[in-house]
């Protein structure tokens, strides 16, 4: 059996977490290769539909990263993220998708090390959960 390589989608807000990811790069902080970043302006623009779509089509995990509460470039944009994404995870859990496949966290522009940590831990977590069962489900 070949080693399970999770395929993960990460939404990073332009101002904090994308910059934090950039900083991790500048500092050459090494991390697993499984995470693919999509840049959005604010974590609050991440539609729950994206998360549901990605997991429904077999992506193993979805990360949503934004500015810390209180530091949002758009003042309170991320307050909405803080509610939508946990709800989305719960809805998925109801129909049999482990809610741990959706993770919301806050990474500031100064937290390259936290970005590394979040990525590393999430990849480990998803490896523990195994492949998204919907990978093999054909409709």
């Amino acid at each position: 059996m070949t080693e399970f390589k999770p395929d993960i989608l990460a939404f990073c807000c332009n101002w904090c977490s994308y910059a934090g990811a950039d900083l991790a790069g500048v500092n050459r902080l090494q991390m697993p290769t499984n995470v693919n970043v999509v840049r959005v302006m604010c974590s609050a623009s991440v539609k729950p539909e994206y998360v549901i779509k990605a997991l429904s089509q077999g992506i193993d995990g979805v990360l949503v990263l934004g500015c810390h509460i209180g530091d949002c470039h758009y003042m309170t944009g991320n307050h909405r993220t803080a509610k939508r994404i946990p709800l989305t995870a719960k809805v998925l859990e109801k129909v049999g998708i482990d809610s741990r496949r959706v993770k919301l966290d806050w990474v500031s522009a100064a937290e390259g090390d936290k970005f590394q940590q979040v990525i590393t831990e999430f990849v480990e977590e998803i490896k523990g959960l195994g492949p998204n069962p919907l990978r093999e489900v054909r409709f």
């Binding site: 302006m41 604010c42 609050a44 623009s45 991440v46 539609k47 470039h73 758009y74 944009g77 909405r80």
Partner: peptide, 9 residues
């Protein structure tokens, strides 16, 4: 300001 909060709503 182009945050997109409305888009997700």
């Amino acid at each position: 300001k182009g945050c997109g909060t409305c888009v997700a709503a």
